[in-house]
Simulated assay, not measured.
Amino acid sequence: MDWDDMRVFLALARVASLGRAGQVLKMDPATVGRRVSRLEGHLGRRLFHRSHQGYALTEDGLRLLPHVEAAQAHLSAAETPNDTGAGLSGQIRLGAPDGCANYLLPQVIARICADHPALEVQIVALPRLFNLSRREADMAISVSAPQAGRLHVQKITDYHLHFAAAASYLDRHPPIRQIADLRGHSLIGYIPDMIFDKELDYLANLDLHAARMTSNSVPVQLNLLRQGTGLGVVHDFALPHAQDLRRVLVPVFSLTRAFHLVRHADDLRNARLRRFAEALIVGLRDQVARLEQAVAQADDQANSENP
């Protein structure tokens, strides 16, 4: 088999589009299609389902994928045996929940790309889990650590969440000093049947009525809160982006969650992805710590001004 055809197969498996695969490979999309068809003819099996939505791997394609990925990892390791520290280049697709993608990753990825001008990073911000076996992304950030699949999971950092509301909302209501005081308030949160990770069901163990305004999007929830329409559970790291919101019940109610970096096991020997992962982890840890510290300092200042 021609390794170049395998390279084309791998690119198409990862992006599911002839046009995007052509951009990655710097190749005409029609040539990508012909090369894949040639490979299918050589193997005597269909590797992709074709549709208007794009190219999806067949069962035969899914069986072939890990072998091609392993071969690519070996070649990458052979090309950079000493991991010399040269600048990163090429395209990396990173999946992340939208809270992380909106309020943490832009700053972190901007710094990484500034250090590596030849690097192209795609941030896929979706409120769902990513399937790395189907190459929806090269790596993904998750809240819960996956328990199945040939995956490598590394904890990045803890982060914290508290109830928050707009100052205008809090000014119109009596002080909130305990959980019971939340009864009768308008709550904002996730759409219950669209919570894709149990760690995001923040209100599950509280004796409160269901949220009245809901969204599967963290930024939408944050913007609903900014309208002065109610209270909701908010990532501390998001609050510097919404300085009109105030934390409440800080001594009484606090949640701790963690971000994990999830990679396909076959990619661990890929020096380029490994170095990107290391920079990403360091950047996210620093960013969460910096933003949470800023929120705590703002609270201390507000408390000193309004004892």
Rank of each mutant, 00 (worst) to 15 (best):
L94Y: 12
P97T: 02
D98Q: 09
D98Y: 14
C100G: 00
C100V: 10
N102Q: 15
N102V: 09
L104P: 01
Q107K: 13
V108K: 09
V108M: 05
I112D: 01
C113G: 01
D115V: 00
E120G: 00
V121E: 07
Q122A: 12
V124Y: 03
R128Y: 01
R128V: 01
L129G: 04
R134F: 03
R134A: 15
R135W: 13
R135C: 11
R135Q: 14
E136P: 13
A145P: 11
A145K: 13
Q147A: 11
Q147V: 07
Q147Y: 00
G149K: 02
R150F: 06
L151V: 08
L151M: 01
H152Q: 15
H152T: 14
Q154W: 01
K155S: 10
K155Y: 04
D158K: 04
Y159N: 11
Y159S: 09
Y159I: 10
H160D: 03
H162C: 08
H162N: 13
A165H: 02
S168A: 07
D171A: 15
R172P: 00
H173A: 08
P174N: 11
P175R: 11
R177K: 15
R177D: 04
R177L: 08
Q178C: 15
Q178F: 07
I179Q: 13
A180L: 12
L182S: 00
G184E: 09
G184R: 13
S186G: 01
I188Y: 01
I188N: 02
G189D: 05
Y190D: 05
Y190M: 06
P192H: 05
I195G: 01
F196G: 02
F196M: 03
L200V: 12
L200I: 11
L203M: 11
A204T: 06
N205I: 04
L206W: 10
H209Y: 07
R212K: 08
M213Y: 11
T214R: 13
T214E: 07
S215Q: 03
S215V: 08
S215L: 04
N216F: 09
S217G: 07
V218I: 14
V218Q: 03
Q221A: 07
Q221K: 12
L222Q: 02
N223S: 14
